[in-house]
Design a protein around this nucleic acid. Structure first.
Length: 483
RNA sequence: GGCGCCGUACCCAAGUGGUAAGGGAGAGGUCUGCAAAACCUUUAUGCGGCGGUUCGAAUCCGCCCGGCGCCUCCA
């Protein structure tokens, strides 16, 4: 089965046919860098990370663009209020660009820990003011935009298809529109392309209309089209940006080029915390830096991928600790499997249907990136594998390697949850030397032989206090670091 | 008020027409000096409720109840 993607534009799963045969261009709305990233960012960027990873696994050459919004995103509704970054800068008595730099680094730090692959290009809005002005010029020339007191607005009534992504009609929006205090706009739902800077506004640039700054929506049109072309494959983002942000992007881009903008629109659903929406005003923000203190980043990644990207995800301690146990179980199997491979033994071939698993997992991922289903298959595989690891028979290292290859392809390459180096998956620091641990295991083994169980239990208990867990098996004693 | 989404076991969660994945928790068992891990068995004649379409529905349609999102900050 070929890859199918749920396209918000058609509200259906569609067979994925790229614009260019083997090239895929994907643009995902990145963060506005005025604060630490939270678990909502994690869900969004983990979701698109597996999109990119799976497309690459399928053999596409993917160009992944994710912007950094460092200007123009206002605190109030789309065209009123303070710039978020300026507001933060004022609060902290810093230059706006220092705030941007700080939180951009913080963002990448967090994303790296979640094993999210970096985008190929992370363009900044402030680095593309010229491109944004160029589009605005075209929109004014073609009558889609108008100037008012040094600001420029997009006239939604001129763009017939406005509302096609979010399923809204202009009439409905008039009914639901907020009262406009300043009515520079011809229509209440018109949106800003360029804003004239008020006195005291720091981040501003010259333009044909005023010294000012770009509207929030225009940056994504400018940067996506600059790097991916006027018509490209996938545009992604959080579902809350479907309207107005993405609707506006479509309007201004298609009005400017006369071409269809992104072919497939993908939206990830949102995170709730203990059943409640996570919001600034509710004060229940969970930053990733906080979450990482309680849970290993890969556990959070695993937790996110255990539900579908288009489903809402509820973040609770109960759910997370359940995920941690499941995740440890999965990783445990892979650790033991790899230890067994290292013994490099001959023996029977493990009777696992590797091709069958592979086909099922590809099919699950091809069905609109069904990571939870793929993880379920990894658990099925692990149960089977554990059975053979425990049945006392000797299996050939070569055939065990083939099983391991499944974990590598789907656990690592596609889902990014089972890394190459497994010893680091515990959040405890690995301060105790492995050779020293092996020495203690050997001493304890000797004590057990002599039935000195009080001593052997003492060694096991004390090591556990130090974060080293011993497990006796028929093949000897395994150890691992615990949290 | 307008637009849209969801409601699956004690908890989390896949599943869009063919007779209920997976994880956690619980119960029983195997293995073990003990423990841990692992494995085996077990836990929804049932998918919010009521109708309808169909040979057949968690899946499609209608109504009702409950929860959520967007329309305002947020990925």
């Amino acid at each position: 089965m070929s890859l199918r993607i749920y396209n918000t534009l058609s509200r259906n799963k569609e067979t994925f046919i790229p614009v260019d045969e083997n090239q895929v261009g994907i643009y995902v709305c990145g963060p506005t860098v005025y604060g630490d990233s939270h678990i909502g960012h994690a869900k969004s960027y983990v979701s698109f990370d597996i999109v990119v990873r799976h497309l690459r696994y399928l053999g596409y050459s993917v160009l992944y663009i994710q912007n950094i919004t460092d200007v123009g995103h206002l605190t109030d509704d789309a065209d009123e209020g303070e710039d978020k970054i300026e507001a933060e800068a004022r609060k902290r008595k810093l230059q706006p660009m220092a705030v941007v730099e700080h939180y951009t680094r913080s963002y990448f730090e967090d994303m790296d820990r979640l094993n999210i692959l970096r985008p190929d290009i992370s363009p900044r809005a402030t680095g593309h003011i010229i491109e944004q002005i160029e589009i605005i010029k075209i929109l004014i020339e073609s009558g889609y935009a108008y100037e008012a007191n040094g600001s420029v607005y997009f006239s939604i009534e001129k763009f017939k298809e406005y509302g096609k992504l979010s399923g809204r009609s202009i009439d409905e929006m008039i009914a639901g529109a907020r009262v406009e205090s300043k009515s520079e706009k011809r229509h209440p739902a018109d949106f800003a392309l360029w804003k004239k800077a008020e006195p005291g506004h720091i981040m501003k640039w010259p333009s044909p209309w005023s010294v000012g700054y770009p509207g929030w929506h225009i940056e994504c049109s400018a940067m996506s089209m600059k790097y991916l072309g006027e018509h490209f494959d996938i545009h992604g983002g959080g579902i809350e940006n479907q309207f107005p942000h993405h609707e506006c992007e479509i309007a201004q881009s298609e009005a400017a080029t006369g071409k269809s903008f992104a072919k497939y629109w993908m939206h990830n659903n949102m995170v709730t915390v203990n059943g409640q929406k996570m919001g600034k005003s509710l004060g229940n923000f969970v930053t990733l830096k906080d979450a990482f203190e309680q849970y290993h980043p890969l556990v959070i990644r695993f937790f996110i991928l255990q539900s579908h990207y288009r489903s809402p995800l509820d973040f609770s301690n109960e759910a997370l600790s359940g995920a941690k146990k499941g995740y440890d179980r999965l990783v445990n199997t892979v650790m033991i499997l790899r230890q067994r491979i290292d013994l490099n033994q001959d023996g029977e071939t493990v009777p696992i249907d590797i091709t069958g698993y592979k086909e099922k997992m590809i099919e699950a991922m091809n069905d609109d990136f069904n990571a939870p289903q793929t993880i379920a298959y990894l658990f099925d595989l692990s149960r089977e594998m554990n059975h053979y690891l425990n049945d006392g028979k000797q299996y050939s290292a070569a055939s065990l390697k083939e099983v391991d290859e499944l974990y590598r392809e789907f656990g690592d390459t596609v889902l990014g949850i089972i890394p190459e180096s497994l010893e680091t998956t515990s959040s405890a620091n690995g301060t105790i030397d492995a050779d020293l641990i092996q020495l203690l295991i050997d001493v304890r083994q000797e004590a057990r032989k002599q039935k000195q169980f009080a001593l052997s239990d003492l060694i096991r208990d004390r090591l556990k206090e130090l974060g080293i867990l011993l497990e006796d098996t028929r093949e000897g004693t395994n150890w691992k670091r615990i949290t």
